[in-house]
Design a protein around this nucleic acid. Structure first.
Lengths: 255, 255
DNA sequence: GTAATAGTGTCTCTTAGACAGTATACC
DNA sequence: GGTATACTGTCTAAGAGACACTATTAC
């Protein structure tokens, strides 16, 4: 190995069992929509540290468990067996991010359709949720500096999040905004059949900005992602809109 | 805590020291340009596993060391004290990715200017390098499925990379391509003063596709990133081009 | 002068925003 | 009929590709 490599690193490479290791965890930003606003599932902490604050659901990664599997396990535990989009966000590894011990956490973003989100809240009585208040900034560039987000309780007060979880939520919003227009994530927040207006509402909720209707329709239809079903919504007091289905184009496994 | 949380996870949350932990490492894709092609620094492994294959430089994360600090340490060890762009890529945590033991590795992308890249190769005799052969695909979309990349030795043979490092390199190329047009990474591969043609050469090398000259110039100048110096290149047998300097616009800390 | 590349002016094409118009439901 | 929303046609503005043109150096 390289002579420029430090002695400690050299030894650690071959027998790191002798060295203290950070714990490895996953934390999930479980996002959905609640009353047309971006929302996320939170657990209220009842003990030290950060007792009383809200935290993202998470768990330690088992020694024989892949990162994705750990994230999927936490997702199952909190949201049931619902199919959902799950994507790795970023890994947070500041030394003092948890005062109890050194924990490196891999943050994941999970997206739940509106119905699944509401159902998860009902099933698990300890889950609460917060809506994300958006700085009105138009179509955000994912490369911009992290804009701080404010998480509001259902009654409208600002929630203080535990640990570095506010930073994780801000990154999740930023990633979601960045991918919204060119990826399929927008459809993950909708039921199987939806109208173009519903799709536009989702985009506007995530971006925090109104969008031009004809341009939005053209863009979405030109993407080739939308399959018209010939069926129409019912129960409206006005002209009913056609229902569409999401049809993935390429086999694309995404990020 | 939630009753839906498994007993094991509950216990692990409070005393994970009793459980076996994965080791946490960082691996670096140290990219630069060599003769106008994207290139990366590699170490040839001389022992099991994957002896004879090439691997990314890396190291274990100390118990009191932030992830970024570990990445910066490995960067220093391999490339000296050169200032460079350093950005987290993704975290790889498949159970069997290293046959010796469970290692979760946080991959980082580091960019070195062409001179610093060459200097690093000279300083460390055990370092070798490979150039990345690009599938000609035009401006890549970072959300696309990972396109496999081929890493070639200086003599042109395809190198087999150890572990999942080929996947990491593919992701690095994809990320670099995705950010190239709207971020400042392109300038990190250039010396302090450079001509517009050099900048375009860098973009073309990364994207693997020729670009339109007037459009490229307009775009770059309109970004407000380029500061003309009034100085010109020397030693050409044709009209010398003006030298520009990169001027960051916002304080932007980026990703 | 020639050769080679730097740098610019302009046309066209594509795409998005703006906005007005028509269509179809319920009352 | 009125009203509310779905859906469309068309104008305009911005940006990129194409390509020809001028400018400046070495020889």
């Amino acid at each position: 190995m390289s002579p420029s490599e430090s002695e400690a690193a050299f030894l650690a490479r071959y027998d790191p069992a002798d060295y203290a290791r950070p714990a490895v965890a996953v934390d999930l930003v479980l996002m959905g929509l609640s009353a047309g606003r971006p929302a996320l599932l939170l657990l209220r902490r009842d003990r030290h540290p950060h007792a009383g604050r809200h935290a993202l659901p998470g768990g330690f990664v088992g020694i024989d468990e892949a990162l994705e599997d750990a994230a999927a396990r936490v997702l199952r535990e909190k949201a049931g067996g619902v199919p959902a989009h799950l994507e790795q966000l970023y890994t947070f590894g500041a030394v003092e991010r948890d005062p109890r011990m050194r924990i490196v956490t891999v943050a994941y973003l999970a997206l739940l359709a509106e119905a699944a989100f509401a159902e998860a809240l009902e099933r698990a009585p300890t889950l609460s949720f917060g809506t994300v208040a958006l700085p009105r900034r138009g179509v955000a560039d994912e490369a911009e500096a992290a804009a701080p987000v404010t998480v509001l309780s259902p009654t409208g007060e600002a929630l203080r999040l535990a640990f570095d979880h506010a930073e994780i939520v801000a990154l999740a919003m930023r990633r979601l905004r960045g991918k919204l227009d060119y990826s399929e994530v927008g459809f993950r927040l909708l039921p199987e059949l939806f109208t173009l207006r519903q799709l536009q509402d989702v985009h506007e909720a995530i971006l925090g900005t109104p969008l031009n209707k004809p341009a939005f329709r053209r863009r979405m239809l030109d993407r080739g992602w939308l399959e018209p079903t010939g069926r129409f919504e019912t129960g409206t007091s006005y002209r009913p809109a056609e229902l569409y289905r999401f049809r993935p184009t390429s086999p694309s496994q995404g990020d």
